[in-house]
Design a protein around this nucleic acid. Structure first.
Length: 816
DNA sequence: TATACTTCTATTTTT
DNA sequence: TAGAAGTATA
């Protein structure tokens, strides 16, 4: 967990929690003086440095010789040097996007256009922010020290809100709720509104609210139709109630960090002008991932000086499902008239065939600005496509290929396996374990999201802030100490009646007869512990106190007693948590930052294959990339298509594009003809994306000899390969899998006619017509009865009575 | 409170 | 199928 410490160190360098100053209407920007760096400017009234003659003179001299500009290509250089006015940098995969961004910042500083604290640079992840900071440091050394406004949207939003909390009805020490706190709160809100929580789960409400917040909508702005869609028309009210609860708790959720900034600025134009003035230059990373709220946030700020530079790639927009609006990037020139658009199309990462494959694929998308990636590398190896009988075999082939590469000296750390959904990982992991192939999974549950860490944090939160009701509820009966629902109910009602926090209510209640003796004494003891810990905090190092809290509360013991496999890991995490506390000056400082930094711990190093989802792979690169599971339904994912139609399909295609462009030298696509979906085996059809690849850059791998392993459970299934599809991909797929003699031996293979001659598939573009006619009634073992809606070769489109319209192979249905 | 059983669901995930 | 979450029972 070294990253945690690194993150801690990183954060400590940019203090976000400076106490807010009282607002002074006459001098609206008094707050700037709270920041040491700002005072210097305050003296110079209006923009002294950038417009000074000296600066302009320096600007005219510096560039040509600047070392940091060396090695940039013409487009990159243009993107760096177009400092004034709106700029959109369309940076294709592997074209040096981060380099441009960091060099641009270095350039602004070097030529005296801006000082580090004049520049607002926003990213989406802490990781990206950290990386940028490091790279800027490398470019210009200490001159870039302390870019105080380089960070994630949320971190910067937090920083701004803490300064003006009172203006939006908060106290400056507001709590930032994590997902689990949010859910617990919503559950309460739902219950309080008398809505059936089973029918309308907190999860879906959270999703709806997040969606609204992503679009910048406050409760009253939510369209009536949408608000009514949840909980029999109560959705809007629930949202409002939730916001009210947040306000009373002096808490915000992630969406609020942006939304409240918008409110702050709209209601206080003087504050807005202050920030517009402050940020001479604005840079945005991954602009294609911005949602509406972020867009509005940026637009408000950029309206001031209009020096806004957005870097992104519409072809890598893969987060539409969580509110990202590709439209933001597509609309940039419209939003910022006169914008300079720079396209970075020279790819420094991949070889020709890989780039050709990725480009041809993505060219199918309609809604895109269009770029043509080019490389000066050679053509390199073709992208391979391999078919496997089932997902187990796919994993087996994957393992063998990797072992083969390893034997030829390929570094495992330069190999990645990118899957569409995490469920695909299991079989692959199983195989790797069997082979003894070292691997690492990237992504997955984050340190601060683990239950034990959140519990421990709740103890610390409550100690530091007795008014933290959510923390109180979380740990009141964890570990189990007999303070159950009844006690909590009593506390809740008292807390509401007296309008005091739960902990305070608890103090009151133990003095009454309301509780039964047993819980009363338990509660009293717990309260005493908390007040003792709070006092301890003043005299002992906070990390030690944390340790004490976890021990005395019985929390550590709870896990020690637990004899499950992961208990040891949990204890280890608790230790790590305490250790990481030492990195912060005090407990509040730690807690304040924890909410925003949820970094995945990437245990670097080690010769391991990386395994992750395609989403997690964005921004990474490897020599060899495996892309298993290219099957229709899985990838492109059926649900994405069902839910978002064409847009969904295009986003899936962008995902495929992202996957391919991760590869430097080798991209290896594979699919299985049979896959277990939710425990049931079903037959699948190769991804339509396979067919969208350019034949000239693709090589179809013949089924290797190793296919001759023992019989599988499918031997008795009807052959899936009756005939062929019209598409080259399908034919290739057939050719690949045809080597297996069992394909011919299916018990009911007769339906589709003999298509195999000694293991070689006769691939005909027309395919063999199915015996079924439109309108025929058929039965499918998985989907049940249905009627044939269309026939295409041996591909049937069937309207199933229950399962709806599906495309299946005729060999998988029987006449009904 | 602990456990055994049932029911439900099942992309992608940062802040 | 497998995991979580909820329910029933001792």
């Amino acid at each position: 967990m070294g990253t945690l410490r690194a993150a801690a160190r990183f954060l400590r360098r940019q203090p976000c929690g400076s106490p807010p100053l009282a607002r002074e209407p006459s001098t609206p920007f008094a707050f700037w003086s709270s920041d040491g760096a700002m005072t210097r400017e305050a003296a110079g009234a209006e923009a002294p440095v950038p417009t000074s003659i000296a600066a302009r003179a320096r600007a005219a001299v510096a560039p040509p010789s600047a070392a940091y500009l060396e090695g940039l290509n013409a487009e990159q250089r243009r993107a760096v040097e177009a400092t004034e006015g709106p700029v959109l940098v369309l940076a294709g995969a592997g074209t040096g996007k981060t380099r441009v961004l960091t060099t641009r910042i270095a350039h602004l500083i070097a030529i005296g256009r801006a000082r580090p604290f004049d520049i607002l640079a926003v990213t989406f992840t802490n990781k990206a922010a950290r990386e940028m900071k490091e790279r800027i440091g490398a470019l210009i050394g200490s001159a870039g020290e302390g870019m105080p406004w380089l960070g994630t949207f949320h971190a910067i939003g937090t920083k701004i809100l803490r300064r003006h909390a009172e203006l939006v009805g908060l106290k400056s020490d507001f709590t930032i709720l994590g997902t689990d706190d949010q859910l617990r709160l919503l559950k309460q809100v739902i219950e309080a509104a008398n809505v059936d929580e089973k029918r309308w789960p907190a999860r879906s409400l959270a999703q709806a609210i997040d969606g609204w917040k992503n679009r910048g909508l406050s409760p009253e702005q939510v369209p009536a139709g949408e608000a009514g869609a949840f909980g029999f028309g109560k959705g809007g009210k629930l949202y409002a109630a939730y916001q009210e609860r947040l306000a009373t708790l002096n808490a915000v959720d992630f969406g609020d960090l942006l939304l409240l900034c918008l409110r702050l600025w709209r209601e206080n134009p003087d504050v807005l002008t202050g920030y517009q003035d402050r940020f001479r230059y604005i840079l945005v990373d991954e602009y294609q991932d911005t949602n509406v709220a972020q867009y509005l946030w940026l637009r408000l700020l950029a309206q001031g000086r209009r020096n806004v530079c957005c870097v992104g790639d519409d072809d890598q927009s893969i987060y539409g499902w969580r509110g990202a609006e590709v439209d933001n990037i597509l609309r940039f020139e419209h939003d910022f008239p006169g914008a300079v658009v720079v396209r970075l199309e020279r790819n420094y990462r991949s070889t020709g065939h890989i780039l050709a494959a990725a480009s041809t694929l993505i060219a199918r998308n309609e809604g895109r600005l269009g770029k043509t990636l080019r490389t000066e590398e050679g053509a390199g190896e073709r992208v391979t496509v391999t078919g496997a009988w089932d997902s187990e075999e796919e994993a087996r082939l994957l393992g063998e290929t990797i072992e083969g590469l390893q034997a030829r000296g390929h570094a495992l750390s330069q190999i990645a396996v990118l899957v569409r959904i995490s469920a695909q990982m299991r079989e692959i992991e199983d195989r790797f374990v069997q082979l003894g192939l070292p691997y690492r999974v990237i992504g997955g549950p984050r340190f601060y999201e683990r239950a034990e860490v959140r519990d421990a944090l709740a103890y610390l939160r409550l100690t530091a802030n007795p008014a933290d009701d959510l923390a109180f509820e979380r740990i009141i009966n964890t570990p189990k100490r007999g303070l159950g629902d009844a006690t909590l109910q009593a506390l809740h009602s008292l807390s509401r009646r007296q309008s005091v926090p739960l902990l305070h209510a608890a103090c009151l209640i133990v003095e009454t007869e309301e509780l039964k003796p047993k819980p009363r004494s338990t509660l009293r003891a717990l309260l005493q512990s908390f007040s003792r810990w709070a006092k301890l905090l003043e005299i002992q190092p906070h990390a030690e106190v944390a340790q004490t809290i976890l021990e005395e509360s019985g929390y550590t013991e709870m896990w020690q007693k637990e004899r499950t496999a992961d208990a040891a890991g949990r204890l280890e995490n608790l230790k790590e948590l305490v250790r990481s506390l030492e990195e912060f000056p005090d407990l509040p400082a730690f807690l304040e930052h924890i909410a925003l930094v949820m970094d995945a711990s990437e245990a670097e190093g080690g010769e391991r294959v990386s395994l992750m989802t395609l989403h997690a792979a964005k921004g990474l690169e490897f020599d060899t990339v495996f892309l298993p599971g290219w099957e229709d339904g899985l990838f492109p994912n059926q649900r994405a298509i069902d839910e978002s139609g064409r847009a969904g399909l295009e986003e899936e295609r962008r995902l495929a594009h992202v996957g391919l462009t991760r590869a430097r030298r080798r991209a290896k696509i594979s699919f299985a003809v049979n896959r277990r979906i939710h425990g049931l085996w079903s037959s699948t059809i190769p991804s339509r994306f396979v067919d969208e690849l350019p034949e000239s850059s693709v090589e179809v791998i013949e089924a290797p000899a190793s296919f001759s392993y023992g019989p599988s459970r499918f031997d008795r299934q009807p052959t899936p390969f009756g005939s062929s599809y019209a598409t080259p991909g399908w034919q290739r797929a057939q050719a690949n899998t045809a080597g297996q003699d069992r394909f011919g031996g299916g018990a009911r293979s007769s339906r589709s006619g003999p298509k195999q001659i000694e293991g070689t598939l006769v691939a005909k573009s027309t395919g063999t017509a199915s015996d079924y006619a439109t309108g025929a009634r058929v039965f499918h073992t998985k989907f049940g009865p249905g009627s044939v809606a269309a026939v295409d070769g041996n591909k049937l489109t069937v309207d199933f009575d229950k399962a709806g319209r599906k495309m299946v192979l005729d060999s998988f249905v029987q006449p009904a």
